[in-house]
Amino acid sequence: MLRDVTFNLAAGSFTCLIGPSGIGKTTTLRILMGLERDFEGWVNIGNGEKRIAAVFQEPRLLPWQTVEQNITLALPKGEQADDLTGLLTTLGLETITQRYPGELSLGMERRVALARAFAVKPSILFLDEPFVSLDEHTASRLRNQLLQLCEAHKVTVLMVTHNVREAAQMADRLLLMNGQPARVIAEVDVPLPRSQRTASAITPFIEEMSRRYPETIQS
C-alpha cells in the first residue's frame, strides 16, 4: 500500500503528514516508531541514542495507574522528569495528578498523553491525529499548549493529520501523501512565521494548496 515513501525531517522542525484517510499515514508513522516490521526500506533516526515518544489517536493510558504514575512510568527506571510540575502546569494537569484515566474527559486524557510524551525528553515526537474528536475550543487550546512545549523542548515533531488548517497553523513543512500505492507527492514549506498565522492570514495558503492538490487536501 506504500511505495517510495521518502522524506527527511529537519532536526527541531515540526512536520505534518497530510492526506486522505486510509492512505497509509498511520502506517508510515508506525514504521517510523518501530511498530511495523513488515516493510522494505530504511529508517534513520540519527546517530547516538535517540529517544522517541508518541501520542496515539487514543490516549492509551494505563487505566489502573494514576495520571502521575502514567507519566512517570514512561521514564526509564531511576530517572526523574525535569520539572514535572512545570510540564503539568503548562498542560493544566497539576490538580488531577492523583486521578485515574477513567475519571477524565477525552481532552484531559489527551493532555496526560502529551505530558507523558514530553516527560521522557524525546528527540523525536510522533503524533497521530492527537486532536481528533475533540471540540474545536479544546482542540485549539491543546494545539497552542503543544506548540509551546515543542518550542521549549526543541523536539523534532512528525504529526499525522487530515485537517489542513491544523497542519497549516502548526507545521513548518507539510508532506502530502497520496496515490495508489501511496507515496509522498509533495513537500511544501508553510509561509509566514508561526506567530503571524492568524486564521485570515493563513487562509490564502490553504486555498492555494487545495487548488493545487485537490485530490489530497479537502479543506
Partner: peptide, 16 residues
C-alpha cells in the same frame, strides 16, 4: 495490543 505498542514505543523494561 494498543497498550503493548505504547509500552514498546516508550521502551518499557520487560519487568515494567
Amino acid at each position: 495490543p494498543k497498550l503493548m505498542e505504547m509500552a514498546q514505543v516508550f521502551r518499557f523494561s520487560r519487568f515494567r
